[in-house]
Write a protein that binds this DNA or RNA. Structure first.
Lengths: 253, 253
DNA sequence: ATGTCTTTGTGAACGCGTGCACAAAGATTG
DNA sequence: CAATCTTTGTGCACGCGTTCACAAAGACAT
């Protein structure tokens, strides 16, 4: 999973807890699937299972939106799909701009689930002049020089950054200056943004490292003594050697 | 950001809180950058800023690993890089298999940060027979039929799923059966796995929906009455009309 | 109309994560 | 060696999120 939002101290927006907001898309997906199978109603238990969460949690989540269920029966699927969509702001169209059309950027542009629900790839932007005009996913790539105009013209408020890490902050600044107030960052960089701008980051390598941690823990439940490679000497900050001489690689205490 | 781990009720592994584990990669990245600039030591304040977190939080995080700092001075960069790497299990090599070589799978295979730190793309697997043998990122794609053997032969314990949603659960089952115990899932599906298998998911569309929620809140702080499209009638579960007649689109209470 | 049965909605308790604020530790200076 | 100054490591309190467990609500049967 990608990690949480950057900045803004977990302020609950309009009474709906952030954790709940993060689960609404999950419910919506499960509900949409039910809707396509023409299932009229669903109980909190069934829906919770489909979404992979606890049923009590789901009911509490829904309680923040209002009382949309019927006791003894469950929730009306269509009605709930609409309510959640509206709550998430998916009843309107969100033009999105992707900056950095490399492998990842192109993959995102082609991603189907992108356009499916309220989001529309409005522009693809890249710094390479050679790419300008090249169609990717049926959309011509535009040059970074025109970034400001592109954002304004299309009324883009959500930007996706898929540039190399070195360019991310600069691109971010330009996006924000052009009026973007929400950014999805795929570059492995900590972005600093002014107050009022939301940043979410998706970091592949972080996800893998977290998995590796648990994997190591599972594997090394017994023999933890398989150290390879030379652990660096612990240098005392002053440059002198510490009083405890050379430190072993194993954790002190 | 991608969302949290699936299953497993926030058990803290070996005394290190899950939230801390999730931040260790961030610290490691910041430390690596300092290391490349040959910075010998760093204070919690500086490092925290670089990683985008609170300095007290950072110190508490490090305290779970042991007392690696020097009061009055800070932390030794090289030493800390090694300790965190070891804690995350990055001192060893993790062969990773990517299943589903579409746009996204190919992008991941080409992703540099992938191989950079402990992870190695050991195999690319796809269900399309026409793709078998085709080199992607310098690695020949192999067919799903051989999945079991490929996983075993390469000792893969971490699998990445980038298939269409319909195939994800089946691929997941086969990976687990072949011995994979950690899965990074990019498919928009809730995977069910046996006890002991870790699943993390990265869901693009969920991230966008969360951004849209905040975006809507920011935009509609005043005029919330811009409803378009016909809100579906609220159907009483039994099929009869509810006693409250037709429901307006606005939230009841 | 009354009773039973199902399922919601929520009060309350608990645990994790965060941030403050400070004492202890050690480096550095004189 | 003593004094000062910087920065760590952590005790503590607070708030959010999760979960349990149950009363209230409504559907359904008789």
């Amino acid at each position: 999973m990608a990690t949480g939002r950057t900045h803004r101290p977990a302020t609950r927006s309009r009474g709906i807890p952030e954790a709940t907001v993060a689960r609404l898309p999950l419910y919506l997906r499960a509900l949409t699937a039910l809707s396509e199978r023409s299932v009229p109603t669903v109980s909190s238990e069934e829906l919770a299972t489909a979404a992979g969460v606890n049923s009590a949690k789901l009911r509490k989540d829904f309680s923040y939106l209002g009382s949309y269920g019927t006791r003894g029966v469950g929730y009306d699927v269509e009605y709930l799909v609409y309510q959640i969509s509206r709550e998430l702001g998916l009843t309107q169209d969100w033009p999105v701009a992707i900056v950095g059309i490399g492998n990842l950027g192109a993959a995102l542009a082609n991603y189907g689930g992108f356009a499916s629900r309220g989001f529309r790839v409005a522009a693809l932007i890249d710094a390479d002049p050679a790419m300008a005009g090249t169609p990717v996913a049926g959309i011509a790539v535009q040059h970074t020089d025109d970034l400001d105009r592109i954002i304004s013209d299309n009324g883009v408020s959500i930007g996706v950054i898929t540039t190399p890490p070195g360019a991310a902050q600069q691109v971010c600044d330009r996006l924000v200056a052009a009026g973007v107030t929400s950014i999805l960052n795929f570059a492995p960089t900590v972005l600093s943004v002014p107050e009022g701008v939301d940043v979410r980051k998706v970091d592949l390598s972080i996800e893998l490292q977290i998995l590796a941690f648990h994997e190591q823990r599972k594997a090394g439940e017994d023999a933890t003594a398989e150290d390879e490679g030379a652990p660096p000497m612990r240098a005392t900050p002053t440059g002198r050697k510490g009083p405890d001489g050379d430190m072993p690689a194993v954790m002190p205490a």
